[in-house]
Nucleic acid binder design. Structure first.
Lengths: 339, 339
DNA sequence: TAAAACAACTAAATCGTTTTCGGTAGGTCA
DNA sequence: TGACCTACCGAAAACGATTTAGTTGTTTTA
């Protein structure tokens, strides 16, 4: 087993000093041609590559970025991650991923662990636990230490940092407007408790669209679940008892389950009832009929987040200016709408 | 902005030496009670945390593991990743993910980058490009340097290292046997070119099951695509021209597309035709009818891979013994089979 | 010919820890 | 009174690289 070779090895082997080797490999003008060539040849022969850790220690730059997401087995987060990874990689950064599993504690632990020198900056989406607890001290700690932070999708106004989100309100507004243009009157909303910033915004868009179109808001048509867990019973009960002709769901799963259930009742989609779901994931694409979806452009989001972060990481000045980029949602029309 | 505090700061502030501080914080017996208490109190007050990078340099241990996968927006890899991340995190390791994007070059670049001190070991699934090129020198380099490596799912006999796979052949064998027990005679296989180790094994299981049940292998019933890209035309042509009553697909997507197409022809699933797909992903679960699937137990796989890797990383001896763990596939029965 | 300039190289500090090996002061024992 | 502990603490090396500030010996220059 040939261990990794270091500058010291090369120096000793060639009878020169470590600094000479270092400079020769950087093609410094300070070193004579012969010496340089000798050293470079030797380094190539033994496949010398500088040790990343040593360089990190010296430069106080790790070229790593930390990504903390609530869940990795989740299409949206995965696409965001892809966007981050692609851009970061192109810029020479590696990505360390931690999964908070929607837990406040794990989020805190992971953050503190990475903050001790392992990364140059964070990109994250808040866990459900954190949003529920409404405690952002770990984020404040990190930013106070001067570590750049970019929040995406699940953000909070409590923290001053760069952010990138989609206009959830507008997405919901447009979806509901689509329903209304189809002539739907009884438009339901399936959502989660509003400590999720996204749920709150989507609900707001839903309400505003109804009001703007002179439809009254019927609280009975809003089905609110405490978490993202699917509650089959809840769905079945809702659709058995309520007469609705359109459904906006804040996620795919609720929509797919609802579609299956109403289909089992013999109700036709989209003739009798229209569906639109948030997140344009695999399920929307492959359900029957295809689920019209509000695309969140995860990959763009990830790319932008990475851009913003690396920009901050690499800028010398300590600007205290933070921006929030708002992406436009797009409606991907499929078979579940348009009768 | 309060910068991170170091041992040196504490030492200077308290008028003691750096070594004293270091020892005091480790609760060493060498340091007097008063001094220890003073130092510990100060450290807590200023929230001192040792710098990971410096420790890594000292110990030649990063507590990072590198994961290289072909694609992150892919349910199976994501579940494996979750298994890895969970276990690694519990053991105090962080995970650096690189996506090879099925490209040989990216796989090589990422590997070399991480191998220069950033990680203690690798877990990876070979990219399509690498399997196609059949060039494993980058893996050989890494193992020659003594960096532990665990391959999962997409492996190669060319490299001596720990491996974890599922018994793909058996999975296919069992699936076909299930078809035969249902009385199916014309059993098709939808697969990809066999430079994918998994495709090869699955095809072998398919053939063996047929032979063992005295059914002849009809090469016309094997639809082979060059890549994992969906070729709608190819699927439609196949199902228009061939009479088949059961289909085993090496992935979900091919199966879902096929199901949709035959349904559009008015063929009934599972009355007229049965379907089984590899990978028990979201699509299988939510398609109509649900797709009976060969579960690959990604999370277990990831966990086992992480176990094997960390075991090797933390063991002192340089054993040259490598094991391959083979997981049993399980058939998840849904509506697409059993008439 | 002495001073200045230059080319080629090295020593040493630095990044933040850990750890080994001393060292000193005070007390104990013979 | 000297030898020997013991308790407590610090200097310095080490990890692997970069970089600043020299140090040579040779060549120009005035």
């Amino acid at each position: 087993m040939k261990r990794k070779i270091t500058l010291k090895h090369i120096a000793r082997e060639l009878g020169v000093s470590i600094s000479t080797v270092s400079k020769a490999l950087k093609n410094s003008e300070e070193i004579g041609r012969d010496t340089k060539e000798k050293i470079q040849a030797f380094a190539k022969l033994y496949n010398y590559k500088p040790n990343n850790i040593a360089i990190s220690l010296k430069n106080k730059r790790t070229k790593n970025i930390g990504v903390i997401i609530p869940d990795i087995v989740h299409h949206f987060f995965t696409t965001v991650f892809r966007g981050i990874e692609k851009y970061a990689n192109a810029k020479g950064y590696n990505v360390i991923v931690c999964v908070s599993d929607e837990s406040f504690d794990k989020e805190v632990i992971n953050m503190e662990l990475l903050a001790n020198g392992s990364i140059d900056g964070f990109i994250m989406a808040l866990s459900a636990g954190t949003q529920l607890k409404n405690d952002y001290n770990h984020l404040k700690e990190v930013t106070a230490q001067g570590i750049p932070l970019v929040l995406f999708d699940r953000v909070t106004p409590e923290i001053k940092c760069d952010k990138v989100v989609i206009d959830d309100k507008k997405g919901a507004y447009n979806a509901v407007t689509t329903f209304i243009r189809e002539g739907r009157k009884k438009i339901a909303l399936i959502t989660t408790k509003d400590y999720f910033s996204v749920s709150r915004d989507r609900a707001a868009g839903y309400r505003e669209a109804l009001l703007d179109n002179d439809l009254e808001i019927n609280e009975d048509l809003i089905l609110e679940f405490p978490s993202m867990e699917v509650d089959e019973k809840g769905i079945e009960e809702f659709f058995t008892n309520k007469k609705v002709d359109a459904v906006l769901s804040v996620n795919e799963i609720f929509a797919i389950h609802s579609m299956r259930f109403v289909q089992s009742l013999g109700i036709k989609i989209p003739e009798d009832i229209s569906f639109i779901g948030f997140t344009d994931g695999l399920l929307s694409k492959y359900s029957t009929p295809g689920l019209t979806a509000v695309a969140q452009h995860g990959e763009d989001m990830g790319k932008i987040a990475a851009e913003m972060l690396i920009e901050k990481v690499e800028s010398e000045e300590e600007e205290e200016t933070y921006t929030t980029k708002v992406l436009e949602p797009t409606l991907i029309v499929r078979g579940s709408t348009g009768n």
